[in-house]
């Protein structure tokens, strides 16, 4: 990294190394480990595939064309976007009140509550999917309880449906939304809310006119983060959606296992491209509104 460094003068503090010594190793690792591989993957996605010869060197858009002309793959694509949108919207609605209370509470239990939100984050998606599996199975808690209560007579089949996947992904993403919103809300001085109240704004008005616009950058960040995570979910759709249900990330892996690397690479790029595109669009839209 060519860095024209200018020390901050007298406040140079503890630094006696040049910028390139300090940031060089980390930058090199990430550049080598992310940008290089992605470029190779992009090149692969333009190759051809032959069932006998596997990957064949070529320069064709065939894989991308196949994806957008085949109803099955398009279906996978739209399922993924739909599931991601639904999950993100529900995460926002469910997450905001919890984030707000966590940000404003002054009880001793605040840390415990936050740890309660954080632990599931680190537990792994497969483990959490397993939790839903015990709940959703045809002889699981939910189905049996519904029958015991006489609400249903048949076992409820939620496993291996889109609903199960949506419920599972929301549980995975909700902590991210809550933590992002919480940190933003904590940065908004409570006096601003009180100022609005004292000027005659009822809670809903206060929310619309003060809290929402001020929290918007954080809301955008949380929404984008959960959206990305939902788009790229792997373990949850695999375990809760079953073999028939397909989202983009599992599709990449299954095509990879079928040895069709060029097509898998193309799907991977479409997944990443869509995610990035929608993310940029969302952040531009919120920025516009924030200025306006």
């Amino acid at each position: 990294m060519a860095a024209t460094l200018s020390d901050e003068g007298p406040r140079g503090g503890a630094l006696i190394f040049s910028a390139s010594t300090l940031i060089g190793p980390a930058t090199a690792i990430v550049a080598l480990g992310v940008i290089g591989p992605l470029l190779i993957l992009l090149r692969y996605s333009l190759n051809d595939f032959d069932p006998r010869l596997l990957m064949v060197e070529a320069f064709t858009a065939k894989n991308y064309v196949t994806f957008f002309t085949d109803a099955y793959y398009l279906g996978v694509f739209f399922t993924t976007v739909r599931v991601a949108l639904i999950c993100t919207a529900i995460c926002l609605v469910l997450g905001f009140p919890l984030a707000y209370l966590l940000a404003r509470t002054q009880t001793r239990f605040k840390n415990l509550l936050i740890i309660g939100v954080v632990i599931p984050l680190f537990v792994g998606n497969a483990v959490r999917a397993a939790g839903w599996m015990t709940l959703f199975g045809s002889r699981g808690f939910l189905s049996v309880t519904l029958m015991d209560l006489g609400i249903t007579t048949e076992p409820t089949e939620i496993m291996f449906t889109e609903l199960a996947v949506i419920i599972g992904i929301i549980a995975v993403n909700l902590p991210y939304m809550v933590l992002t919103l919480q940190s933003v809300l904590e940065g908004i001085n409570r006096n601003l809310e009180e100022a609005a109240f004292s000027l005659g704004a009822a809670p809903v008005t206060m929310f619309v006119r003060v809290l929402w616009p001020l929290a918007l950058p954080g809301i955008a960040a949380g929404t984008i983060l959960t959206f990305i995570l939902a788009m790229n979910a792997y373990a949850t759709p695999v375990l809760l959606g079953g073999p028939e249900f397909r989202m983009m990330a599992p599709l990449v892996y299954s095509q990879f296992q079928l040895n069709n690397w060029p097509f898998a690479a193309a799907v991977a790029f479409l997944l990443m491209g869509t995610t990035l595109l929608l993310t940029i669009a969302a952040s531009l839209a919120t920025r516009q509104r924030f200025r306006g």
């Binding site: 992310v34 591989p37 992605l38 190779i40 993957l41 990305i228 788009m231 790229n232 792997y234 990330a249 990449v252 892996y253 990879f256 898998a264 690479a265 991977a268 790029f269 997944l271 990443m272 995610t275």
Partner: peptide
Amino acid sequence: PGIVLGFA
């Protein structure tokens, strides 16, 4: 995305 980075 993890799956993309892993594949890459």
